[in-house]
Nucleic acid binder design. Structure first.
Length: 857
RNA sequence: GCCCGGGUGGUGGAAUAGGUAGACACAAGGGACUUAAAAUCCCUCGAUCGAAAGAUCGUGCCGGUUCGAUUCCGGCUCCGGGCACCA
C-alpha cells in the first residue's frame, strides 16, 4: 500500500479494472429500474477543454450515483462530427475533413478515458458515419412523403467577392470574415421542415416538463411566441397603374382595438407588391436593393435604422372606408406573418418613430381612465379606453378587440387568428461537410426522394479545398445519377448539423442496424432521465430535439412525447485574461499561467501586463487551460473534484489553479488518514449505549453528512455544497482522538462513508481505497450508496437565536423537550436581551421552533 | 433592438420554504516543526469603533411589503447567454 497519495498509479489501476470488467456496459434488464444519463455530445474540434470536463463530470457523477443506488444505468458518448470547423481546417491544411475529424476524435477519446468517465463505449456514435446518417436521410424522405418537408425561397448571407454563402458567424460587422467585402442578402430555394405544424404541441408540452429549469421553458415559450389577435384585410384601391397587384393585403395584429388609428400600411421590401413597384420606379428599386445590403441575423436587422418609402398605392380602411397610404419599410419581415403590418403610431413606439420621421399624420385612439394619456413625445402603448373611434368610443381595449373582430368577421374583412413567432426550420446548407440531402431533381422538373434501397447517399470523396463552393456541386460523377433510366441530378445541399444532434440520444438506445430505431430497445431506455449541457442550447438544440422526438413518435419509432425528462444547464468556464500591447498597438494575449496575479507582471520577465477582466475561456484570449497538463500534474480525481466544487453547476465557474490545489490537498489528507485507518485489520462493533457526548456528536455528523450529501447530489444537484459537507466530516475525522475503542470504530465508519460519498466524484481514489479494505471482495461502483440512521441523527439540545426587533442579541441552547413558554422566559431573561428590551412593553413574541425567537417591543 | 439569467468579504462561493449573512475552500498575515526550503500542523481573517463585553453599518443602486428581506414586489444599473447558417 502506498503511504502517499499517487494519483497516476491508482488511477491507472482503477481504469484498467473498469476496462477489463466492461464495468459500464449497459444491457436491458427488465428487473431493474433504468436510468438514462446523457450529456450533450461534443463537436470534435480536437481540443477537450475545461467546459467539456465540467459537462461530462456532472453526468458521470450522476450516472455513478444512480448505479450505486441500484439503477440500470445507460451513460453513452459520441461525436457531433459534421460542421464548419472541419471545412475550415480542411481548407487551411489542404486535408480531408473526414481525416481531420477522425484524428480529433481519437485524441479526445483518449483524454476522456484518462479522466475516468464511465461510458458504455460499445454504443459510441459518430454522426459523419454513413451508418448513422443513412437513417437521418431515410427519415427525411418519410417527412417529405408526409408533406412535412418542402422547398421554398429563403435568404442567405452572400459574399459577392468570394461568391459564397456565409454563416452568420462568418459575417463580422456586415462584412465577409475572409475578404472584408460587404455582405448581401441572396435568395435561394431551400428545404424546410414544418416545425410550425407542431408549434402548439411544443408549447403545451412544456407544461409537462416539471424537471426542466423554468428559465429554459420561458425562453422556449417566448421563442414559439404564440399570440392571439386578428387578421385584418385591407382592400387595395383599384385606382392604380399596375398589373399583378393583389386585390387585398392581409395583416395580423394583436391590437385590433387600435384599428381606428391606422396611419398607413407597411409591407416588406420582399413583398410581391414591392417587386412590382420596383419595376416601374427606380427610387423604389434602389430602396429595395439598399435593404438587401445587410446580413440576415435578427440581431442585425433589429438594430437597423428604421426606414421606408412611400408608394402611390392606397388601401381602404375596412371600417371607415377611408384611404390609407401604403409604404414599404425595412423593419417589416417577409418571414413573419404575411409580410405586411398596419402602423398605429399613437400606440406603438416603433410606428411612432417611423411616422415622426416621415411626417405621416396620425391620431390617438386609446386613452387611460383619467384621460391623461399623452402622445406628444412617445406612443401610449398600454391597453385603455377607446377615443376618436366613432361607434367604438368608450369601449375598453378588451371589449373593442371583440367587437371590432366580430364586425370585421361579419363584413368578411377579418377574423380571429392565432399567430406564432416560430418559423419553419430551414435545413439546407450550401456546405460540403454535412449529410447530403437525399433528393433528386428529374429533367421534367419533378422532385423525388432517394429510395430506401439506395440509401445512404454517401458524401462525395472529392474535396475542393476552396471556400467558394461545396465539393458536392463540382463532383459531376456524384451529382449526376439516374432514376428508372431517367436522368437525375442530386441535391447538392447538405443538412443543418442540428439535424444530427436532434435524434442521437435515441440512436444510443438502439443497437439495431437494419432500422433507424428498434422501438423495443428505444422505449426501454427513453426518455433520457437526466440531460446535461450548456445553457447556450436552451432554445434551438433543445427545441429541435423535442420536435424530432414528436416526429419519431408519429412515425411509430418511440412511444414517449418528450425526449428529456430532467434537464440541467451548466454554466460556462471563465478565467482571467491578460494582454500587453505590441509595438503596433495590437493586443498580445498572455496566458494567465505566466502572470503573477498580484503584481500583474509576467513571472519570468517582469514585464507589465493589463488585466482584461474575466471572460469565457477561449483561444482568442489565450486564457484556456489544457486539461491534459492538469491531469498529469494533479490527476483526474483532483480535476473532477475541483470542477464540481468550485461553483454551482448552473453558474459560470472561475478557473483558479490555487483553488484546484486546495481540492488536491483535501484528497491527499483523506488518503493518508484512510490508509493508516485501513491498516488496522480488526475493528470491533460500536457499543452504542456507552458513547461519550463527543462520540455521539461525531456519529451524528457522519449520518448528517450522508443525509446532506444524498440530498445535494441526488435531488438538488448541488455538488459544491455536498462536497463541502464531505470536507467538514473529513476535518472532524482528522481531529478525532482515537484512544478509545468506540472512537476507533467511528473513525472506520467515517472512512468507509467518505469513500462511498466520494465515489461518484473521485472514483479512482475510492476504487483503490475500497479494494484495500480488509476482507473486502466487492468493488465500489457496485456498492450500495450509504443510508443514514434517524436514531443517530436524534438530538437532545436545540439552539435558538434571540432577536429584539429583528436584531440578533443572543443565542441560547435549551433542552429539546423544554416547553415553548419556558424557552421564551429564558430568552427574555438573557442579560443582553434584557438590556435591549430596556423595560419597554413587549408587543409580540415570534417563535420559530428550533430556530429563532423575535421579541417585538 | 428583443427574450432569458446573474450581481453576497481580498477571491470562488454558502444560507434548501421570508428566520442567526459569510458554511466549505482559496489568498493573505502570524506561529510550530526544519540547518534551510518544500510539505504538514495550529491561530487570525467583512468594515468601523472598543481592552473586552458589545455596538453600528453591510448581500449592485433607489424605493416598497413584513415583527424580520441576500430571499418577495416596483423602478434603475452593470455583466453574461440566446436571437433561427458557430456548435
Amino acid at each position: 500500500m502506498k503511504e502517499n497519495y499517487q494519483p497516476d498509479e491508482i488511477e491507472k489501476i482503477a481504469q484498467e479494472y473498469w476496462q477489463q470488467n466492461d464495468s459500464f456496459k449497459a444491457n436491458i434488464d427488465q428487473n431493474k429500474e433504468k436510468f438514462y444519463c446523457l450529456s450533450m455530445f461534443p463537436y470534435p474540434s480536437g481540443n477537450l477543454h475545461i467546459g467539456h470536463i465540467r459537462n461530462y463530470t456532472i453526468s458521470d457523477v450522476i450516472a455513478r450515483l444512480q448505479k450505486m443506488q441500484g439503477k440500470n444505468v445507460l451513460h453513452p458518448m459520441g461525436w457531433d462530427a459534421f460542421g464548419l470547423p472541419a471545412e475550415n481546417a480542411a481548407i487551411k491544411n489542404k486535408c480531408n475533413p473526414a481525416d481531420w475529424t477522425y484524428n480529433n476524435i481519437d485524441t479526445m477519446k483518449g483524454l476522456l478515458k484518462k479522466v475516468g468517465f464511465g461510458y458504455d463505449w460499445n454504443r459510441e456514435i459518430t454522426t459523419c458515419d454513413p451508418e448513422y446518417y443513412k437513417w437521418e436521410q431515410w427519415f427525411f424522405t418519410k417527412l417529405y412523403e408526409k408533406g412535412l418537408a418542402y422547398k421554398k425561397l429563403s435568404h442567405v448571407n452572400w459574399c459577392p467577392n468570394d461568391k459564397t454563402v456565409l454563416a452568420n458567424e462568418q459575417v463580422e460587422d456586415g462584412r465577409c470574415w475572409r475578404c472584408d467585402t460587404k455582405v448581401e442578402l441572396k435568395e435561394l430555394s431551400q428545404w424546410f421542415i414544418k416545425i410550425t405544424a407542431y408549434a402548439e404541441e411544443l408549447l403545451a408540452d412544456l407544461d409537462t416538463l416539471d424537471d426542466w429549469p423554468e428559465k429554459v421553458k420561458t425562453m422556449q415559450r417566448n421563442w414559439i411566441g404564440k399570440s392571439e389577435g386578428t387578421e385584418v384585410e385591407f382592400i387595395v384601391d383599384s385606382k392604380h397603374e399596375y398589373t399583378n397587384i393583389p386585390n387585398s393585403i392581409k395583416v395580423f395584429t394583436t391590437r385590433v382595438d387600435t384599428l381606428m388609428g391606422v396611419a398607413c400600411l407597411a409591407i416588406s421590401p420582399e413583398h410581391p407588391i414591392s417587386n412590382v413597384l420596383a419595376n416601374k420606379h427606380p427610387q423604389i428599386k434602389q430602396f429595395i436593393s439598399d435593404c438587401m445590403t445587410t446580413g440576415s441575423s435578427e440581431a442585425e436587422l433589429a438594430k437597423l435604422t428604421k426606414k421606408g418609402i412611400a408608394t402611390n398605392i392606397s388601401v381602404i380602411h375596412p371600417i371607415t372606408k377611408a384611404s390609407v397610404p401604403l409604404w414599404i419599410a425595412n423593419f417589416v419581415l417577409m418571414g413573419y406573418g404575411s409580410g405586411a403590418v398596419m402602423t398605429v403610431p399613437a400606440h406603438d413606439q416603433r410606428d411612432f418613430e417611423f411616422a415622426t420621421k416621415y411626417n405621416i399624420s396620425f391620431k390617438q385612439v386609446i386613452t387611460n381612465t383619467d384621460n391623461t394619456a399623452d402622445i406628444n413625445d412617445s406612443a401610449f402603448t398600454d391597453l385603455g379606453i377607446l377615443c376618436n373611434s366613432g361607434d367604438f368610443n368608450n369601449l375598453t381595449s378588451a371589449e373593442a378587440k371583440q367587437v371590432i373582430t366580430s364586425k370585421l368577421t361579419v363584413a368578411n374583412l377579418g377574423e380571429k387568428q392565432i399567430n406564432y413567432r416560430l418559423r419553419d426550420w430551414g435545413v439546407s446548407r450550401q456546405r460540403h461537410w454535412g449529410v447530403p440531402i437525399p433528393m433528386l431533381y428529374l429533367e421534367d422538373g419533378s422532385i423525388v426522394s432517394v429510395k430506401e434501397t439506395e440509401l445512404p447517399v454517401n458524401l462525395s470523396q472529392a474535396i475542393t479545398h476552396d471556400d467558394s463552393t461545396s465539393s458536392l456541386t463540382i463532383d459531376e460523377n456524384w451529382k449526376h445519377t439516374s432514376l428508372n433510366n431517367a436522368k437525375a441530378t442530386r441535391e447538392t445541399d447538405t443538412f443543418d448539423t442540428f439535424m444530427e444532434s436532434s435524434w442521437y440520444y435515441a440512436k444510443y438506445c438502439s443497437t439495431a442496424k437494419e432500422q433507424m430505431l428498434d422501438p423495443k430497445e428505444a422505449n426501454y431506455w427513453l426518455p433520457v432521465d437526466q440531460y446535461i449541457g450548456g445553457i447556450e442550447h436552451a432554445v434551438m438544440h433543445l427545441l429541435y430535439a423535442r420536435f424530432f422526438h414528436k416526429l419519431l413518435r408519429d412515425t411509430g419509432l418511440v412511444a414517449s412525447d418528450e425526449p428529456f425528462k430532467k434537464l440541467l444547464c451548466q454554466g460556462m468556464v471563465v478565467a482571467d485574461s491578460y494582454y500587453k500591447l505590441d509595438k503596433d498597438g495590437v493586443k498580445d494575449w498572455i496566458s494567465p499561467s505566466l502572470v503573477d496575479k498580484t503584481t500583474c507582471k509576467i513571472k519570468v520577465t517582469g514585464e507589465d501586463v493589463t488585466h482584461a477582466g474575466i471572460s469565457k475561456m477561449s483561444k482568442s484570449k489565450n486564457n484556456g487551460v489544457d486539461p491534459k497538463a492538469i491531469l498529469e500534474k494533479y490527476g483526474a480525481d483532483t480535476l473532477r473534484l475541483y470542477t464540481m466544487f468550485a461553483a454551482p453547476a448552473e453558474q459560470s465557474m472561475e478557473w483558479s489553479e490555487n483553488a484546484l490545489e486546495g481540492s488536491h490537498r483535501f484528497l491527499r489528507r483523506f488518503y493518508s488518514y484512510a490508509i493508516k485507518n485501513i491498516s488496522i485489520k480488526e475493528v470491533p462493533t460500536l457499543d452504542k449505549n456507552n458513547l461519550s457526548t463527543s462520540q455521539r456528536e461525531f456519529r451524528r455528523l457522519i449520518h448528517k453528512t450522508i443525509e446532506k450529501v444524498s440530498m445535494d447530489f441526488n435531488q438538488r444537484l448541488s455538488f459544491n455544497t455536498g462536497i463541502a459537507a464531505i470536507m467538514e466530516l473529513n476535518n472532524e475525522l482528522l481531529k478525532l482522538n482515537c484512544q478509545e475503542t468506540n472512537s476507533l470504530v467511528l473513525a472506520r465508519e467515517a472512512v468507509i462513508t467518505i469513500i462511498k460519498l466520494l465515489a461518484p466524484i473521485a472514483p479512482h481514489i475510492s476504487h483503490y481505497l475500497w479494494q484495500k479494505l480488509p476482507n473486502n471482495t466487492t468493488d465500489i461502483i457496485n456498492t450500495p450508496w450509504p443510508t443514514f440512521s434517524s436514531e443517530a441523527l436524534a438530538q437532545d439540545i436545540s439552539k435558538y437565536a434571540i432577536q429584539v426587533n429583528g436584531k440578533l442579541r443572543a443565542s441560547i441552547e435549551v433542552s429539546i423537550d423544554l416547553p415553548e413558554e419556558d424557552i421564551k422566559q429564558q430568552a427574555i431573561s438573557n442579560p443582553n436581551v434584557n438590556k435591549h428590551i430596556n423595560g419597554k412593553a413587549i408587543k409580540r413574541i415570534i417563535f420559530i421552533p428550533n430556530k429563532l425567537i423575535n421579541i417585538v417591543i
